[in-house]
Simulated assay, not measured.
Amino acid sequence: MPIAKNPILRYRIINACLSNKHKRYWTALELIEKLRSYDYDVKKRTLERDLELMRYDERLGYYAPIAYDNNKKAYYYTDPDFSIQSLLLSPEDLETLGNTSAMLQKFKGLGFVNAFQEIVDKLTRLIEHMRIPQRNDIIAFEDNGYNKGRDHFDDILRLISGCTVASIRYQKFNRQETDEHIFHPYFLKEYCQRWYVLGYSETRRNTITLALDRIISVTDTTLPFLKDKELSPEKYFQHTLGVTIGQGPLEDIHLHFSPVMAPYIKTQYLHGTQHILSEDKTGLTISLQLIVNPELMQELLRYCPHVTILKPTSLKEKYIALLQEGLKNGK
């Protein structure tokens, strides 16, 4: 958008005038001349419309306390301390967020950004949308409403940041009983809009993953924190789809997708280890280096009937068994 056409910049110039502590009152001619000094050749009607929008427009949300003094023939803020710059997400805030987002985008490919790349991309799109206040409600971000795991997110993040051991009461979905974990949390991971925390459980004497939406309670302890300097999200989940660490060996998996599904698989990889082996009129063949786990099986079922498992045979047998079980349940 050319600078002379951007109304947000006009609002900022008007605001700078009316919030000036040394000159509170501004005539229409003075405001127009100030705008023209910034290459805004506006008419009085445009100025009056800008002032009206700054006062009442819900999309802008300024609700600027602009009044007109009949004696001075000038506009002023009834609240001398008011400024749109002090409001939440002012244009300058958006500019700062935009610069931060652009900086993060430059680091694509680095591990610490990859973990949050989807969030960074969403933030970038949201900032661009918010920079166009006259076009409202044209972007709908995915929102599944309430997610129980969010209730514990801040607590878990605080524990990780403070290297604090917690006592966590935990209940699996398929059990009535609860488990008590003396837990040393290391890092958080999101998968399918659910959050998980990886850490060392003194109860299990092993590194495990807990789903935040299955946590009943979190209580701080004063126990010494056990650090694992060798553990990192990139290494731990390097050959895992989702969050469940499988018990089997690392497999060289070959999958063939139909021509209908091929474009989707090419433009959004199933996993970071995905490699395209071949593509022709019959479809797309890819390879994955993964340990077989429940999330992988769920993903393969999701692509039925457009996926064929070429290898390993053991994975193909598990897949067929699940399909047969599903047919039984459907009868």
Rank of each mutant, 00 (worst) to 15 (best):
G111A: 07
K189P: 13
K281P: 13
E234D: 14
N6E: 14
P259D: 07
L29D: 14
G98E: 14
V243Y: 03
Y191I: 05
N6C: 13
T273N: 07
I320H: 11
F141R: 11
M297K: 02
Y76E: 09
I139R: 00
F153M: 15
K43R: 10
L53R: 13
R175P: 06
Y11K: 01
E48Q: 15
P263I: 06
V307I: 06
T313I: 08
Q324C: 07
R150P: 04
S314N: 02
I215A: 00
D39P: 02
Y186M: 10
T267C: 06
Y319T: 07
A115L: 12
C192H: 09
E279M: 09
P294A: 03
E180P: 02
D252W: 01
I320D: 11
R150T: 12
Y146H: 14
D41G: 01
M1I: 04
T240F: 09
L126W: 09
S83D: 02
A140N: 14
L290R: 03
L159V: 03
V307K: 03
H254K: 12
V120T: 13
P249H: 06
Y303W: 15
G248W: 07
R131H: 12
L226E: 05
I32P: 00
S83F: 01
L18T: 11
N144V: 15
G326H: 05
Y40L: 12
H184D: 01
Y63R: 15
H256D: 04
V218R: 03
L322R: 11
Y63H: 15
F173T: 05
L290K: 00
K72Q: 14
L322C: 05
I84R: 00
I265V: 14
A4M: 08
Y38K: 07
T209E: 01
Y25K: 11
E48L: 15
T273M: 05
R45A: 12
G109L: 10
H129D: 15
L94S: 04
V113R: 10
L89R: 04
Y319R: 04
S19H: 03
Q324H: 13
R45F: 11
L212H: 02
P80T: 10
